[in-house]
Amino acid sequence: MAIETERKFLLHYLPSSLLVNSTLIRQGYITNKKDRVVRIRLSGDSAFLTVKGATHNASRKEYEYPIPKQDAKEMLQLFCKKPLIKKTRYQIEFKGFEWIIDLFSGDNQGLVVAEIELDSIDQAFEKPDWIGEEVTHDPRYFNSNLIETPYSAWQSKDH
């Protein structure tokens, strides 16, 4: 069993010069409940089945398994709720940590978030100057909630 501890942020600005290697991601949810999600993800040439438990203070149990790419394509089509999450992912190293920047497309076009995985919620790290407001505990930004209420449907686009 793995524990995922992740913090999520909006950006002050997009560090375009650092966005060099991208991965296209399509993902969908077979089960999407507050206490558990079952996700299928196509990430570049890889595919995964992921089961996640309830989030408690930015941490949750996570189990992830590689699956055949063709199986993932079929499950995304046959079993996952629509719309699928579509995003381009960039990985950036900064002061000993890996930051992930996701640029969403489709129904979530315009949404950009950065994430950092930590060993514990209180682990110290330095934020790059492009990191803005923390949205870790705002459920609107959970990928699993973006299928229910996509960014394009938000009443107020103050984020």
Score class of each variant (00 low, 15 high):
Arg7Pro: 02
Val51Gly: 07
Asp45Ala: 12
Glu6Cys: 04
Val51Ser: 13
Pro68Gln: 10
Gln77Glu: 14
Ser17Lys: 09
Glu134Pro: 02
Gln77Ser: 06
Phe79Met: 11
Glu117Thr: 09
Ile40Pro: 00
Glu126Ala: 09
Ser17Tyr: 13
Leu42Val: 14
Leu146Pro: 00
Val37Tyr: 06
Lys86Asn: 12
Trp99Cys: 03
Pro150Tyr: 05
Gln70Ser: 14
Met75Gln: 10
Ser120Asn: 13
Leu14Tyr: 02
Lys82Gly: 11
Leu111Ala: 09
Ile101Gln: 05
Ile147Gly: 01
Phe142Gln: 09
Phe125Cys: 07
Thr23His: 12
Pro66Lys: 07
Lys73Ala: 13
Thr136Pro: 02
Ala114Met: 11
Lys87Trp: 01
Lys157Tyr: 01
Lys8Leu: 01
Tyr151Leu: 00
Asp158Ala: 15
Arg36Leu: 10
Ile100Met: 13
Pro139Trp: 03
Gly106Met: 09
Lys52Arg: 05
Arg140Met: 01
Asp35Thr: 14
Ser17Asp: 13
Trp99Ser: 03
Thr31Leu: 07
Gln123Pro: 04
Thr5Arg: 03
Thr5Cys: 07
Pro66Thr: 14
Arg26Ser: 12
Asp129Phe: 01
Lys61Tyr: 15
Ala153Gly: 11
Ala72Ser: 05
Asp158Leu: 06
Asn57Met: 15
Tyr90Asn: 02
Gln155His: 14
Gly44Val: 04
Asp122Lys: 06
Phe125Thr: 09
Val38Thr: 08
Phe48Cys: 04
